[in-house]
């Protein structure tokens, strides 16, 4: 499948107030491409959750969004601490976020479950001490 478009973003880990900028930009780009609103919503929510996770847990990272005729692929890669127990992290309500993060309205333990819920495919490749790469796909048709 030929790749139609690629967007690359650096997610700044130092500035919590900027978190979400890449997702909002992707939403705009997808809208300009004329993708269905429900697809745009799913992609942007899943990506925002991932972006927030990279800021909270990993000190930032990089996000790549590939758009093909059949799907939108989101690849989020960081060099953070990694995820020790992925099945535990996937449980709704499980979170290792600090109280400070929770006071901002995050850390509800919904990030990874939401990413799974809103995508058609999700894989987590994580090595403790090295980092995490998450690949998600949302089918267009």
């Amino acid at each position: 499948m030929s790749e139609l478009l690629n967007f690359h973003f650096v997610v700044d880990g130092d500035d919590f107030t900027c978190a979400g900028q890449a997702s909002v930009q992707v939403k705009k780009n997808l809208r300009q491409l004329g993708l269905p609103p429900e697809i745009i919503r799913r992609v942007s929510i899943a990506m925002y959750e991932g972006e927030i996770n990279m800021v909270i847990h990993a000190g930032g990272g990089v996000a790549d969004v590939n758009i093909t005729e059949d799907f939108v692929e989101i690849i989020l890669a960081d060099k953070g601490p990694g995820i020790k127990d992925i099945s535990q992290a996937m449980q709704e309500g499980y979170s290792t976020a600090t109280d400070n993060i929770r006071s901002l309205g995050f850390g509800a333990g919904m990030g990874l479950p939401n990413m799974k819920r809103y995508t058609d495919y999700m894989s987590i490749d994580s090595v403790v001490g090295e980092g995490t790469t998450i690949t998600m796909k949302v089918n267009i048709n």
Partner: peptide
């Protein structure tokens, strides 16, 4: 962050 959430939703 409420702005990003409102925008995305």
């Amino acid at each position: 962050n409420i702005l990003a959430v409102a925008s995305l939703a």
